[in-house]
Design a protein around this nucleic acid. Structure first.
Length: 235
DNA sequence: AATTGAGACAACCGCCTACTT
DNA sequence: GAAGTAGGCGGTTGTCTCAAT
């Protein structure tokens, strides 16, 4: 069974669960500098206690600069329905036709919204000419990565690891990604302050603060449902 | 105000394919 | 050609939020 696989990592030595801002920053910073030619080696090189798969998933689904966040437009939804009607659960293929959307996100949207909608019209009427959406061309050689950004090749090597930066980040209180009822919103301000701190560090580190067009929030990072809307912050 | 169940979504798991040795 | 490795994909799960009661 040559195809058999050893576990990708020692599960007892890696972190699982939601990613912390510091971890995200480490990952983004590392990929920004070195790219991601080897996912398995990446966590160790980046100083992350995560398995390579987890890093890859996090990068592809949330940290990539071109990931589009937010609600799907009716056009996007129609496209998904049509593509699913013709090719089935080929999420990565579908994702390759929707710029900025990930297979995971499309899969979630399908399972939570679109499946029901499609089931309501089992004859596929909805998927016919009633929509103005133009079905994107599906080509065989359009892998899911076709709409993904290439890993940045390090334009200029910044050799020295910024230990101070990581020290600061690691010293930050872990942000409560999933505010609980117990919080009662009481530590919201603290969260905002902490987020503001690390975001500023992030932007400086990545050189986003000085030039356009993107801030970290414009990149869609941490604009998720689990965090306050960072766009309202002024640093 | 407390409880509960459904909806939503991030993350993990395991298999498959492609590539390398 | 066989064996091993890494990346990618799709299915599934865990845990959160929120509306209904």
């Amino acid at each position: 069974m040559g195809r058999g696989r050893a576990p990708c990592c020692d599960k007892t030595k890696v972190r699982t669960g939601p990613w912390s801002p510091a971890e995200d920053l480490r990952l983004m910073n590392f990929i920004g500098k070195h790219g991601h030619s080897n996912w398995r080696a990446l966590p160790r090189q980046a100083g992350l206690l995560r398995c390579g798969k987890s890093c890859r998933l996090r990068w592809i689904n949330y940290l990539r600069p071109d990931v589009k966040r937010g609600n799907f437009t009716p056009d996007e939804e129609n496209t998904i329905i049509q593509l699913h009607n013709s090719i089935g659960n080929k999420w990565s293929k579908i994702a390759s036709c929707l710029s900025g959307r990930t297979d995971n996100e499309i899969k979630n949207v399908w399972n939570t919204h679109l499946k029901k909608r499609a089931n309501k019209k089992p004859d596929g009427q909805e998927n016919s000419t009633t929509t103005t959406t133009k079905l994107p061309q599906l080509s065989k050689e359009s892998p899911s990565s076709s709409c993904m950004s290439n890993p940045k090749q390090p334009a200029e090597e910044e050799e020295e690891e910024d230990d101070d930066l990581w020290h600061v980040l690691d010293s930050l209180d872990p942000i409560q990604l999933h505010p609980t009822k117990e919080d009662g919103g009481g530590n919201e301000l603290i969260q905002e302050v902490e987020i503001g701190k690390w975001l500023r560090i992030l932007e400086n580190e990545l050189g986003l603060a000085a030039h356009q067009p993107q801030s970290a929030t414009d990149l869609g990072i941490y604009n998720s449902t689990y965090l306050p809307n960072l766009d309202s912050f002024s640093f």
